[in-house]
Amino acid sequence: MPATMLEDGVPLQRPMLLPQARGPVSEAVLSALRGAPVALPEAVGAGLAASAGILDDEDVQLALFLLYEQHYGGLAEVDEDLEWDATLLAARAAIETAFEAALRAAVPMPGRPEPTSPAVAAALFALTGRDDGPSLSRYVAKNATLQQLREFLVQRSLYTLKEADPHSWAIPRLSATAKAALVEIQADEYGGGRPQRMHSAIFAGTMRSVGLDDAYGAYLDLLPAPTIAAMNTMSLFGLHRRLRGAIVGHLAAFEMTSSVPNRLYGNGFRRHGFDERTTWYFDEHVEADAVHEQIAAHDLAGALVASEPSLLDDVLFGAAACLFVEGRVGAHMLTAWNEDRSSLRGPLP
């Protein structure tokens, strides 16, 4: 595997290598990103019309992911000016419209609390506290093989190697208590001024400790549509000011379903004899997210709804969407493992 560039032990993010196409839409997006002439609107329109379900569409989810990645760490050998290319932005918008509609149709909405901070916090704790079927974290703690643990890290890597980034888009779109709360959480996510404590850097260390490549996107070709769709959900919410309620709700639900599962994930790696070099990431999240979930529920989501009551439904939608898309990723993994096969699209090197 290629050596990652390290600065004081922390990986330097490089534009990710372009993946293989999965169909005509991602093929057209890749061509456009490479600067080749291509009828992008037609390819996207035809792909969306032919899609049997956008949430599980390998081709369309990969295409959307690539369009979003231009706004994060970037893509190798792609002209950086294309980040704001009108044709690519129009393609992104067409896919996003279908994607958001599919999410709004599929995500079960919880009951609506009063638009006050305590009521919203209580509603979010109730929503995220519901036990929803089989548990990935319990399986990882008790049953996962070493190969499944490595797969688990690969599945997580798409988000976790840029942990916190999609929610940071919301900072300039919030104000007062909610803004201070988001920055308080994100400062901790980014290591409180110490790059070695940045959660993405700690996770990169976990990957290296089990012999995995920590370069962003190194395993993208292996990741199935539900995993990419969960990442795309965060980017969709994070990149639209209109959806600031949803990205706040998403972060709240993410933090509120983290402490307890992370203790179990760590137990799974300890069961296989791994030490703190591998489990630090999970141990850190047990403690950190017990803090973050309180800030996210009360000072972030609660305060946002109190100051902008019209955002109540989107905060709830964002939280429920987080549980929905992350639950689909977990179910995809558990189904594959229970059938004694890989949850990835190909063998892990």
Binding site: F125, S259, V260, D289, A290
Partner: peptide, 9 residues
């Protein structure tokens, strides 16, 4: 002395 979320369980 830190919280680990067990209160929810």
């Amino acid at each position: 002395p830190w919280c680990d979320g067990t209160h929810k369980i």
